[in-house]
Write a protein that binds this DNA or RNA. Structure first.
Length: 141
DNA sequence: GCCAACGTTGGC
DNA sequence: GCCAACGTTGGC
């Protein structure tokens, strides 16, 4: 099982759009590195959903439901898409600022490779961000 | 709206 | 195959 981070501009396609439709297709990727990451995805992999430009925060988690298939938004066979479903909406979105301020998240691709739209993320970093975003599930004594 | 980072294109 | 020009992304 691999973990990923998917970036979208919320005025184009937001996490809320995905929650409302229940399932979606992650398409429109036109970058080779991002495409290669889509191709490496397996059914059941999970991904953080990041809102770029507006919000600049991780707002939830999605699960990959299909292997990569030809992107339906183009006739060019070299571009790929995957199916996704929402699995968790954060109580408290995790801002880019908070990620940059976290000592254990300095090296993630979101910070280091800000222009990549589909990137792998280590399980440790994935779990830290989930814990930050899903704070109401952390109960204190 | 600006600009840095970086990917792509095209002339040579 | 190099590299300058150009386009796009995304944070600020």
């Amino acid at each position: 099982m691999q973990f990923w981070l998917l970036k979208s501009e919320p005025n184009v396609y937001s996490f809320q759009n995905l929650v409302e439709s229940g399932e979606g297709i992650w398409d429109g990727v036109r970058n080779y590195q991002a495409r290669n990451n889509l191709r490496a995805m397996q059914v059941g992999d999970q991904a953080l959903f990041y809102h770029s430009n507006i919000g600049k925060e991780v707002v939830g988690v999605v699960q990959i439901t299909t292997m990569a298939f030809p992107d339906p938004t183009t006739t060019d066979p070299k571009w790929l898409a995957v199916g996704v479903v929402p699995v968790l909406a954060f109580d408290k979105p995790v801002s880019l600022q908070a990620i940059k301020a976290h000592p254990a998240l300095q090296e993630i691709a979101l910070v280091k490779h800000s222009r990549l739209s589909v990137m792998p993320i280590a399980a440790e970093a994935f779990n830290i961000i989930i814990a930050l975003g899903n704070q109401t599930q952390i109960h204190e004594a």
